[in-house]
């Protein structure tokens, strides 16, 4: 059990920034992301004995973070009538590096972040974290068909705005 806790702790240390990034994608907010990662660390260490050795630790940690977000933070914010806040703009814009590549990267980031939560979550997991459909479904505990329909809807939306951007670029 102790060895397992050490293993989880080492894994957490390794994946802290990736967990934080996922928390930002979910919450859109830096301070909530900090707290989500902290709660994830606590929960993961508390449940160290439930981790199955030989399986992917990063996936396990992501799923813990997601369930804390869904069941505790997000639901509470909704209950309290705070709803959802605008994305923390400082997390998107990076004025210091306004090369063309970065402008485009920022545009992609903003478009994904503007998607509804259910869609941006699957886009992030499938295309940024590069999980398979099956892995996304397992992590989010939803049917694979739901993963597919969310990705399709997100893709259609992103494709539509890519078209608009292309037209603007030409104009």
């Amino acid at each position: 059990m102790i060895a397992n806790e050490q293993e989880i702790r080492a894994g957490l240390s390794q994946y802290l920034t990736r967990l934080w990034r996922y928390a930002v994608v979910l919450s859109h907010q830096r301070d909530v992301a900090d707290d989500l990662v902290q709660a994830t660390c606590v929960r993961a260490l508390e449940r160290a004995s439930q981790f199955v050795p030989g399986t992917r630790l990063d996936r396990w940690l992501f799923s813990i973070l997601h369930s804390i977000w869904l069941n505790e933070v997000r639901s509470r914010r909704v209950r309290m009538g705070q709803g959802f806040v605008d994305a923390d703009e400082s997390l998107v814009f990076d004025g210091a590096r306004d090369t063309e590549t970065h402008i485009f990267a920022n545009q992609v980031l903003r478009q994904v972040q503007a998607l509804p939560e259910a869609q941006r979550t699957v886009v992030f997991l499938a295309y940024v974290e590069e999980l398979s459909y099956r892995e996304v479904a397992d992590l989010l505990e939803i049917p694979i068909g739901t993963v597919m329909s969310r990705l399709a809807a997100a893709r259609a939306k992103l494709a539509a705005s890519a078209g608009v951007n292309a037209l603007e670029g030409k104009g």
Partner: peptide
């Protein structure tokens, strides 16, 4: 739909 094949990884790297 393929026009939504965007550089997602690169876009999220700075985060």
């Amino acid at each position: 739909l393929a026009s939504s094949n965007l550089p997602f990884r690169d876009a999220f790297e700075p985060l």
